[in-house]
Design a protein around this nucleic acid. Sequence first.
RNA 1: GCAGGGGUGGCUGAGGUGGUCAAAGGCGCCGGGCUUAAGAUCCGGUCCCGUAUGGGUUCGUGGGUUCGUAUCCCACCCCCUGCACCA
Length: 949
Amino acid sequence: MSRTTVGVKMAKEYSPVDEVAWQRKWNEAQIFECGIREDRPKFYCLEMYPYPSGKMHMGHVRNYSIGDAVARYKRMMGFDVLYPIGFDSFGMPAENAAMDEGGHPYDITERNMASITQQIKRMGFSYDWKRQLKSHDPRYYKWNQYYFTKFYEQGLAYQEYAPVNWCEQCETVLANEQVKAGRCWRCNGPVVQKEMEQWFLNINKYAQELLDGLDTIAFPENVKSLQRDWLGRSEGAEITFEVEGKDLNIEVFTTRPDTLFGVTFVTLAPEHPMAEQLVKGTEYESAWQDLYDEVSVMAEFDRIRDMKKKKGVPSGCFALHPLTGERIPIWIGNFVIASYGTGAVMAVPGHDERDFDFAKAFDIPIRRVLVMDEGGDADAPLDSAETDHGWMVNSPLEGFDGLYGEEAMKAVTNALEIEGSGKETINWKIRPWLISRQRYWGTPIPMIHCEDCGVVAVPEQDLPVELPTDVAFGQGNPLETSEAFLNVDCPDCGKAARRETDTMDTFVDSSWYFMRFTDALNDEKCFDADVANHFMNVDFYCGGIEHAQMHLIYARFYTKALRDLGLHSIDEPFNELLCQGMVNSPAPWCDSCQLTLSVAHAGSPCPHCGSELSERSAKMSKSLGNTVSPGLMIEQYGADTVRLFILFAANPTAGMDWSDLGIASNHRVMIQMASMPDKLLGWGQSPSPMDTWMLARLKQRCAEFQQAMDVFDLRRAVEISHYDLIKDINWYTRRGGDNAELGVQILKSWTHLVSVSTPHLAEEWWQQIGMDGLVSGSEFEHLPEMTNEEQSALDNDTVLRSVLDSARRIKDVAERHLDGPAQSATIVVSPQWKRTMAVEALDFIEQGGSVKNFVGHLSQMDIAQGERKGEIIGYWGKKMLPQVFKWDDASRALLRSSLDEVTALTNGSDFIAQELGLQSIQVVLGESADDQTGRAGGSMPLAPAIVYA
RNA sequence: GCAGGGGUGGCUGAGGUGGUCAAAGGCGCCGGGCUUAAGAUCCGGUCCCGUAUGGGUUCGUGGGUUCGUAUCCCACCCCCUGCACCA
């Protein structure tokens, strides 16, 4: 396609570059295939690999545009960049689609992958496609199974009969992490508790390391905080209460052993095994049964809401206080959660709100054992639970009263340890990862159930256990419908046995794919340890915040677990994590209902209240209908424009608003950019002093660009490459620059900067300036350090520009004074004594002197002697002092340099006159014989007075 | 309730180790130039006042520290995100 041909459809904009052709060339040249060069550092750039739904959406485009810019930048800086892509292709949507529309999940998945791959490729991302992987490939999931059998050997994987979260709609169990507010994270359906035999991975073994590791990696604070919450470490004590008259012990966990003497009852969760035991056959049994029935059928979410109302039944039994032997009633209460801690609590109503409420409801004594002020009243009644740390009071044993906080807890714990009825312990909120799923489209758990041998792992040589194809969907677990799959001989004894039919949570797949990428074509091993160690860890990981607690915890866990299998030696998988913001788009908004509505309502009154609708930005969603199709945008504007818009519209981590106006404006920039080589190559052969300035500016821009990219400030980088440099070039030509040789030099560097965000256009440029090969495959040639001469060219220009700016600002007002257009102007440079004063003050302050003391110093200086002394000292306080702090480093250097303002401005005076539309400009030194204006008083170093006439 | 992150000019958004901040850039808007014209590019302007480079009022609200604060301290209000009777 020619750059100047308007497309056939006039309504559509045209793309000035044949992007697909360049993509083909990249592919043919294989420049994105990553190898290991001895003398090069590596850089591993990764995006969260996508689930292959049918289409690429804007979230994908944003995610990959960010990652691709980083990958291209690092490549051009000489790194071996590993930048792979694959598909997280196991999962329920494909299986559900198979059930809805017929067909097989395999076909549906492959079909979707083909279509999304094509769309991704059309964007021109620089992936190493050779390394592409897909979770549903047996060559990949074989290793899920291999790891599982190893974990099983080590006891890290185990089977347990336990209450689990069951999603009725999805007909499968869920991990705790997959239950959001009591509902399924996938279908939002209700989740109930069910007792089942299930497979778990004991992530708790790594809880402490997962917590500590957070301090060593560059994750955003909110993600770290999320993970810390999820891990939920709490320090406390486990305490044993004997049950009176029975051979039973109740274990409780508490974070507040210092309140042990305030215990007035002990509470068991209704599901606690001992609860039933204690009430069995007593008058309390039916009350317990009622509570149990009520609570256990309730979805967890409703139950937690219900806990606000304290419900409980007595057990009729008593526990014995571990230190005093006091008889303490045992209750069964709805507010105790069976699965946290030990499922039993020691209740201290005086110093715990829940216990307080419960005690009030059931008329149980409330005892004060802490005071909140040292020496406070130990007998003061408690109107509410006082839960802060305090000083122990009313202790029935010697040696405790008066102890505070940590010390108090320590003392009580010690006493318990001596008695053998308690110990310090750490409790975690995180629970073992339940990985069993009763669904088809996942990795089969490689286990065999034999009547004689029990559970037996499938031997390594028999892996992978492949998914059968002869299954029926829609009636429970499809794997149970395949006889060929189910029936197997026991690997140990050879007798007929039965395969495990659970498959693995798909988060298993995504927990190590980044390691597979390092050595994706290896048929012998999951990956070679040396290769993985070379490329890991991931230097830049980009994806959505929604994976902050599931994927990013599981992946960290797997990395550590695989390390401990000896497969590699990396502790943390991801170094730097960037969570890109949402892509939003306008949708109708009703201000009085505070409601976002579907775009179907645009232009009509609010369907609820009838008032007029305004617009508001909302997350793109099918239900609101405010999605923007990447495919259409690429068709209309080209991939480069879409990328430019996405990178420029907002910082990577911020939410961004889609704007039709915005993308159109970015497209204009692209069209303008496309003409730059012609423009620069078409310059004449006239070197000028401005060439030095332009070259200096180019060096400055390249340095700024690198600084921005190095901290992943993509927005700023794009601004430099696509906006600032154009402005610089305009300024250069405006000041008379016209040197094609310099034009080529600019383009050689600039093309690299441009290639980071708009690579197709960059290739076009590269070709136009006659360079060999592809810019995408070539390294950036660093420019030489800025010379002193170049620096001063920049400085002189800065002075000139600031004079021009202030001259413009006052021109209007001045002309009102003159009663007509100004004809000429005199630029009055500040007299030498002001600059001397400024430099002296800067030195004084930089050497640690206080501003306040400078007056004293000034009065000793030569410039302040004589009859003008008062005036000069006054000038300091009123004018110079505030200004001294306003000069930046460059200006300070300028003040101290040999810069002659009169000469610099005289050289530029024709230009200034022209810009201001004046006939002449005169530059004079203030208070000198040349200065006829008498207006030197308003001048400052670097800021002359301007007098119009 | 707890934790993390925020509140900046018409919108967006940078800065935030106190002075380079009336506050970048983008969008929008206004004016000029160019053009047969439109579009694009280019130039200038865009808090208020002002017979000359200055003054006034601004960075959620109210106080405070300082020669000086969008930037530091205290209190409060509001928004987002996550967790939540976790013992």
